[in-house]
Amino acid sequence: MVRLIAFLAGLGFVGILLYSLIMGAVSFVSEPPAKTVEHEFHLHPKELHLASDGPLGKFDRQQLQRGFQVYKEVCAACHSLHQVAFRDFKDLGFSEAEVKAIAKGWATETPSVNPETGEPATRKSTPADKIPSPYANEVAARAANNNALPPDLSLMSKARHDGGAYIYSLLTGYTDQAGFKNHAGQELLKEFPDAKTPDGLHFNPYFANLNIAMPPPLAADGQVTYADGTVATKDQMAKDVSAFLVWSAEPKLEARHQTGVAVMIFLLIATVLAWFSYRNIWAGIKH
């Protein structure tokens, strides 16, 4: 009885699925799904090699400090970094006093309350504070940016596939849409004449839908002046800020790598011992 019901139910499911399959196949052949411009012209991120890559990777502190400078002088005007506190910058190799000075001198102050009147006010930040957002709230952020919301950057390198490489590619990927060709040699505007980038957006083949609201943030070489003498080319700045954002998303990366190596060595020895113990106990027993 169970098997009869099962047989009928099985026939039902299989029948419906095969019917759906045939109908789907027919419509797939008769009206193939239109190709989308994103599908044909979106580019995978370029390669980016950072010191923090790989199982033994460590941050390049010099690069993190440069990246921090780019964030502070370029990105921070619009993008918040609200998971990160000023005290965390000690990780970048800054001293306690430097961190204090960074917090105090930050362009945006920390929101607070006027102790006399109770009115909203701002105060200088301390190392214990999180990085204050450049906008009071989302509405203000959108109002100032043509209704586009500059996302928080704290976790950006973990919130996108290929993390740091994505950020690097995006920052250096702005290009002219006219004449843009994909790897197959097709020209975007010839294949998709309607896909012209609307006014107010910027063409960037590394962005998911190819048109990003953010204008090219790294416009010219030498936009920041590095204290360590590194030449601030656009490419260098993009790499540095990507490295910084890899750190901001995963500040415990070094501890993770170091602990991991110790744990793996321990487990390897333990497993080998366990194997010998197992063979020892089973010695002479056929199984």
């Binding site: 321990f266 487990l267 020895i269 333990a270 011992l273 113990s277 010695a283 002479g284």
Partner: peptide, 25 residues
């Protein structure tokens, strides 16, 4: 499948080592 009588005690060392090592972990 009885284990051969002699040598068993000596080889118990590996069991003790494995358990102690796991305990430390």
């Amino acid at each position: 499948g009885e284990v051969a009588g002699d040598g068993v005690r000596r080889r118990d060392f590996i069991n003790i080592a494995a358990v102690s090592f796991a305990g430390v972990g």
